Amino acid sequence: MHSAIESLQGQPFFVRRWGDPALPRLLLLHGFPEYGGAWAEIASHLSQHFHCIAPDQRGYGQSWAPEGVENYAASSLIGDMVALIGAEQGPVTVFGHDWGAAIAYGLAMFHPHLVDRLIIANGVHPVPFQRALASGGEQSAASQYIPWLRQPGVEAELSANGFEKLQALFATHMDMSWLSGARLQAYKAEWARPGRLQAMVNWYRASPLQVAKPGQPIAMPALPLARLTVPQPHLLLWGDGDTALLPETTLGLEEFAPQLTRITIAGCDHWLHHQKPKDLAEAILNWNP
């Protein structure tokens, strides 16, 4: 692995790279509350076939973390990765998980010339996700952590007692045996960097997603449906035990992704890239759209 601070739009971003730079490029976009190092396991399986590029996204790890919720609007977060891909001189395959999937979808939809293929692991397209959040059903109930995270001062609660609540937040009913020992200490070191926890939560605060209360559906906000199509070949990898993102969050995805391939990874959950990295890598390498 090679890692370095790289300048994107004049700001410092920490980027990890695995594999020969001459290989096809694979941009790996992490979610909450991870960082670029979260991709180390899957990169070990893919770096013979791809030049894997894993940035700490804005507000995370060792990358730029400006103050102010307005700095975490989706357009700005996507713009960071537009700059990174632009520096690579040509389209790349983009692989996103969780919040990284939101940025990956944004790249594919709004900057299609920069993305040749789209891979998502337990992440969601904005339209099916907003539909599920607005329904007042099971996904609305599962996503009540979103309005909780948007509360002022929640960072102090998350960091108390060695980040006890932050760990509990993303461990609910899921297998977290992968996050222990030296790896857990590495995550805590990233979370403890000054201003990072606030910046990470600002991704939620800046998001326009509306979350209904259970049993109280809300009207769907207006969305630019015609602009939200994924024209590239699209692979969706899904851990079937995810309790944070339920299957309903991908209902109707084919409407927006006509070249969609779905693969279920059995026996894992939202953290499938840690639990079964070899299975994910094999699915990616065997995908021939």
Score class of each variant (00 low, 15 high):
Met1Ser: 08
His2Asp: 10
Ser3Arg: 09
Ser3Pro: 00
Ser3Glu: 15
Ser7Arg: 08
Leu8Cys: 04
Pro12Met: 08
Phe14Tyr: 15
Arg17Val: 08
Arg17Ala: 05
Asp20His: 06
Pro21Asp: 10
Leu23Val: 13
Leu27Ser: 02
Leu29Val: 12
Leu29Phe: 06
Glu34Lys: 03
Ala38Thr: 14
Ala38Tyr: 10
His49Leu: 08
Cys52Phe: 03
Gln62Phe: 13
Val82Asn: 04
Ala83Val: 07
Leu84Tyr: 06
Gln89Thr: 15
Gln89Ile: 11
Pro91Arg: 00
Gly96Pro: 01
Gly96Tyr: 00
His97Gly: 04
Ile103Arg: 00
Ile103Pro: 01
His113Phe: 04
Leu114Ser: 03
Asp116Val: 08
Ile120Thr: 01
Val124Cys: 14
Pro126His: 03
Pro128His: 03
Ala132Tyr: 02
Ala134Cys: 13
Gly137Cys: 03
Ser143Thr: 09
Ile146Leu: 06
Pro152Trp: 09
Ala160Asp: 15
Gly162Lys: 05
Lys165Ser: 12
Leu169Trp: 01
Trp178His: 05
Gly195Leu: 11
Gly195Ala: 12
Leu197Val: 14
Asn202Asp: 13
Arg205Tyr: 07
Ala219Tyr: 05
Ala222Arg: 12
Leu225Arg: 06
Arg227Ser: 15
Leu228Tyr: 03
Gln232Tyr: 00
Trp238Gly: 00
Gly239Ser: 09
Asp240Ile: 13
Ala244Met: 13
Leu253Gly: 03
Leu253Ala: 07
Ala257Pro: 00
Ala257Val: 14
Pro258His: 06
Gln259Ser: 09
Ala266Ser: 14
Asp269Glu: 11
Lys276Tyr: 10
Lys276Ser: 12
Leu285Gln: 14
Asn288Met: 05
Pro289Phe: 13
